[in-house]
Simulated assay, not measured.
Amino acid sequence: MSQSPNRMFDEFAKLMTDAAGVAQGAKREMETAFRAQIERFMSDMDLVSRDEFDTVKDMAIKALDEVEKLEERLKAAEERLAALDKNTKPEDKA
């Protein structure tokens, strides 16, 4: 008779272990389904990935740096042109 309660507890422990395994499996399936739905939703919204965003951001930074360099060159060229105009005598222009 002492074997009966232990056997019942063993069976109950196995049942709980199996239930925990099923619950973990269900959790993984729900996470996978949820993740797939989110990805589908985001692709329908035409959102960009982080990699694409970072690439375009880097391109924009490089373009702005180049614009600044060109603005400096243009300003220097305009200053040289203005200096040449000041040094030129009015009779030389005619």
Rank of each mutant, 00 (worst) to 15 (best):
R28S: 04
I61Q: 02
I61E: 02
L47W: 06
L74W: 03
K93F: 02
M1R: 13
R73K: 11
A33I: 00
F12C: 14
T17N: 11
L15Q: 14
D18L: 13
D51I: 04
E78V: 11
F9A: 15
F53L: 09
P5V: 07
A76S: 08
N6P: 02
A36R: 02
V56F: 04
G25Y: 01
K86Q: 08
D18Q: 11
D46I: 05
E52D: 07
S4N: 12
D65S: 04
F9G: 08
L15R: 10
L47R: 07
R7Q: 12
M1V: 12
P5E: 06
E91Y: 06
F41E: 10
N87A: 15
S2M: 11
T55V: 06
E39S: 03
R40G: 05
E52W: 01
K62R: 09
K93I: 12
A13M: 13
V56D: 03
D10L: 15
M1I: 09
A60Y: 05
P90W: 08
G21T: 08
A82T: 12
R35P: 00
A77I: 04
D10R: 14
L64K: 11
A82W: 03
P90E: 08
F34S: 13
Q3K: 13
T55Q: 06
E39N: 01
G21Y: 09
V48A: 11
E68G: 06
A13K: 15
A63S: 05
R80E: 06
E52N: 04
M1S: 14
D92F: 05
A83Q: 09
T32N: 03
E29H: 02
A19H: 07
R7K: 09
A76N: 08
